[in-house]
Amino acid sequence: MVVVLDGFLDAGNAGALAAQHLIDLNDGGGRVVATFDVDQFHDYRARRPAMSFVRDHYEAYDAPRLVVRLLQDSGETPYLLLSGPEPDNRWEAFARAVRDVVERFGVSRVVSVGSVPMAVPHTRPIAITHHANNPALISGDSPWRGELRIPSSAQALLEVRLGEWGHDAQGFVAHIPHYLAQLDYPKASGALLENVEKAGRLTIDLSGLAAEAEDREVEIARYLAANDEVEEVVQALERQYDAFERAEENGSSLLADDQPLPTGEEIGQQFEQFLAGLDDPDSAGGSGSPDIDRP
């Protein structure tokens, strides 16, 4: 089962784009086999769903949905996709509800995807952090050393709890250039799904995402060519990234004394116009348990 939750762990909308791509590859979007009572988990005041006001009345309310779909890959191998907004509360109840789904459908492995903003350039390969509740599932070397204290998420807690209950779970987190974190970044979505393919032994057509990624890269390159200051920031990130890579290859410290990393404030100032330019088409640039469909 693939797990993709919108919200906290979704810089560049990489996870949401990946989930939608999987749904679009199936006729009719697949079959919904389990639904969660979103009212038990969603904070409507913190994340207000959109709706339309048409002249003199309201309509088209986009109600949040947290569902499990039965999908098929290119070789007609069935798998489940749990997608929707990350629960704002009752994480323990959510984890128990997901366990019900895992055990009801005999899920052999849960694979989650997410993305976080990082001080990395878009001109280098997408870095992926691998994690799992079973060491045997780790398929890549971790770029992190020691222990990090980080804000938790529903996905992270779910992985921990599933491990305690004897269910394998692993995941992949893409590192998104933080100056692109507010934009759709399909390049990262493709990188995440490549890892999902390997972990789940699935075959997924990624050509659509690849085409979207190329279009986005062209937009970014056009904007950089017209904005020298922004391009200088990207070049600084490239130097920092390359210094880290050389240090890793040499087995030395990851910190490069002669390659200062731009601060978040510096990059934020430089890319304020960058984000606006890409968004402007005229610019250059109960218990919480799920309702399971019993076949």
Score class of each variant (00 low, 15 high):
D56C: 00
D56E: 09
D56P: 06
H57T: 11
H57G: 07
Y58L: 13
Y58P: 00
A60F: 08
A60I: 12
A60H: 14
Y61P: 06
D62L: 15
D62Y: 09
D62W: 07
D62M: 13
A63P: 04
P64A: 10
P64F: 06
V67F: 03
V68Y: 07
R69C: 10
Q72G: 09
D73Y: 10
S74H: 03
E76H: 15
E76V: 11
E76Y: 10
T77P: 01
T77D: 06
T77Q: 11
P78Y: 07
P78S: 12
L80N: 03
L80T: 11
L80W: 08
L81K: 08
L81Y: 05
L82P: 11
P85L: 11
P85S: 12
P85T: 13
E86K: 11
D88F: 15
N89C: 11
R90I: 07
E92P: 10
F94C: 11
A95P: 05
R96C: 12
R96V: 14
A97K: 06
R99I: 14
R99D: 11
R99W: 09
R99H: 14
D100I: 14
D100R: 12
D100C: 13
D100E: 15
V101R: 07
E103K: 09
R104K: 07
F105I: 13
F105R: 05
F105T: 14
G106M: 07
V107H: 07
V107S: 03
V107M: 05
R109N: 01
R109K: 15
V111E: 04
S112T: 14
V113R: 00
G114W: 01
G114D: 06
G114T: 02
V116C: 02
V116S: 05
V116H: 04
P117D: 02
P117G: 04
M118S: 10
M118Y: 01
M118P: 00
A119I: 01
V120E: 00
V120D: 00
P121Y: 00
P121E: 02
P121R: 04
H122M: 03
H122N: 02
T123R: 07
R124V: 01
P125N: 00
I126E: 00
A127I: 02
T129L: 05
H130Y: 05
H131P: 05
H131D: 05
N133D: 00
N133R: 05
N134M: 04
N134H: 06
P135T: 08
P135A: 03
P135Q: 03
P135H: 04
A136I: 05
A136V: 07
A136T: 08
